[in-house]
Amino acid sequence: MAGTLMALLFYLAVLVFAGGLLYRIAGYARTPAPLKIPTTPAPTTRSGVVLRMAREVLLFESLFKANLWIWGFGILFHFGLALVLARHLRYFTEPVWGWVDLVQPFGIYAGFAMALGLAGLWARRLFVQRIRYISTPSDHLMLVLLLAIALSGLSMKFIDHPDVVAVKRFFEGWLQLSFQPFPDSALLVLHLSCVALLLLIFPFSKLLHAPGVFFSPTRNQVDNPREHRHLSSWAAARYEGEGPRG
């Protein structure tokens, strides 16, 4: 029964996550950027923009310029999360991919890094006056949710092991639409419910910063307005009938 419920919850969560995200991304992609507004100095070539974007997404370049505390905690959390996610691939692959095997030990430390990063960000939200001022309840709850995921995960590693073989059997079954028994572990239920909730709210929340950054005109535009005439669809259509003298 618990297994069926959890499996259904995850089908729903993944569906909402993927569908919602695709819908939002399509919305961003469809909306034109009528004017050239890169924050300069900006690269003058496409490949330069790819590099700028890579520095932004992988190294948080702008945040580094802004504030070393937020940058440090942000890096700890996001890179921790990336490694932890990589480590979790072992529950979904058989045989486990070689590189996933390799990251297993690092994934454990990454769990701590993730929790530490989240705790640091939350401490700033609670104790730095400016950031407390701009925080909404959902900003706090988002950190609580992520911390709950990290801490329940770490607890299962270090305090109360669930039957990981059964966990893997459950998810391999889930991938093939076959309902397998769910291991009896309250921590696991908590962990997975929180993950499902995170997937469910992703397309409706500020977590949209993840796809959003790729569509940010101040970052993804090439600085070449004098060399190329940039015209958006609506602006072109709006002034089409006006003749050559405007």
Partner: peptide
Amino acid sequence: LLEKYRSLKVYMDACVHCGACSDK
């Protein structure tokens, strides 16, 4: 405007209230 300007559309969604800009 949300349909016409990608900047506005993305910027309304993307902010995480991190505070990087708050003292700038």
